[in-house]
Nucleic acid binder design. Sequence first.
DNA 1: CGTCTATTTGAATGTACTCAAAAGCGGTGG
DNA 2: CCACCGCTTTTGAGTACATTCAAATAGACG
Lengths: 200, 200
Amino acid sequence: MAVDFQAIIANLSRHTEFNPAELAQFTSQLTWRQAARRDCLLRAGQPTRKIFYGLSGALRAFYVDKTGRESTIMFAVADWWVTDMYCFVNAQPAMLTIEAIEYSHYLELTKSSLEQLYLTVPKFERCFRILFQNAYTREQLRVIENLSLTAEERYLQFLKKYPQILPHVTQKQIASYLGITPEFLSLIRKNQRQKSIAQK
Amino acid sequence: MAVDFQAIIANLSRHTEFNPAELAQFTSQLTWRQAARRDCLLRAGQPTRKIFYGLSGALRAFYVDKTGRESTIMFAVADWWVTDMYCFVNAQPAMLTIEAIEYSHYLELTKSSLEQLYLTVPKFERCFRILFQNAYTREQLRVIENLSLTAEERYLQFLKKYPQILPHVTQKQIASYLGITPEFLSLIRKNQRQKSIAQK
DNA sequence: CGTCTATTTGAATGTACTCAAAAGCGGTGG
DNA sequence: CCACCGCTTTTGAGTACATTCAAATAGACG
């Protein structure tokens, strides 16, 4: 079966130049998979041996606290990497659950394959150094926003920042990403509608 | 002047093995500095060309929003790296301000030196890949905590997680790290005292 | 020692949550 | 393909968590 690796190759090549042999070595380690709506790629408590790369559809990583409340850590649409990185890196059972929001295609890479790649092709160190660097700065911006913005401002920021995610997710899921209740997000949206009418 | 690089060498060597020549190349790029209480290492709006490594004392990185409210992004005591990473990486003017909380020693490394090191000694890619990986997972945990815990729980978590930071910082600074007002942190502490008395 | 800032306390307020119930919409099975 | 069921969204009332403002007290730096 000929799987189309163009998307992930283009993504890697944004940061580093690879030759065909290196790319072949990389893609040989990838497993192509599909998931139905609500399928779990990773369940909290399970070993965390894989990292995922979205091709189509949408994935969601979330944490469930002791009271059962869900906090969405990230959405992964096409061309996003996702896993429970802390547990992946430290070989711990997952804290997060990752599930398909809708029918999705994705690629899977194991921790041992990735570590092999680091050793045999050091350019992958560079490539993933840059990916982690970007991931870190993105999370740091999110911390700043969580600390300094109101729920309404965070919602508007989310709309602006992630328009490509919107078609895939429910309001309830957005609320759990923003750290508010679905009821309160509904109220925020109502207020927004009022304002946009008042503008006219 | 013989500067003591043992601490930073030990820190790097936790992740990767370097030979003496490589370490010498690294340390030759470092500048040793001291800062008095309230000195700014980086001011919001300035170019962000340097990354800092704490040796003694304590540094604080914070964001000031349009209303003048400060959000502390991180504290850096001995053996912590700190900069406005987003702006450092993307060569943007700083969003954050970094200042010394107390008289401190630190090392400085420029972006161009670091990029040179990546190219001449690829092991530094590995080393910083791991540093960024850890930084990313740490920020992700903080996002989870900010979303799923109350202010009181976040405070207790902070005490548990960063005991080495406590002696260096004021309550006001802790409050700005937790995303609450100093008055409310004061109340939380009062409630904590009540509880610990009730225990007896 | 004096001044400036941090901390505490309290009252009034605002932001966001809980609980409950109705309305809307979408996926699934018959 | 339609109808039903279940989940999402909306709405509202009452509540809890956290803030603002103000003033008194305590501490720390120069």
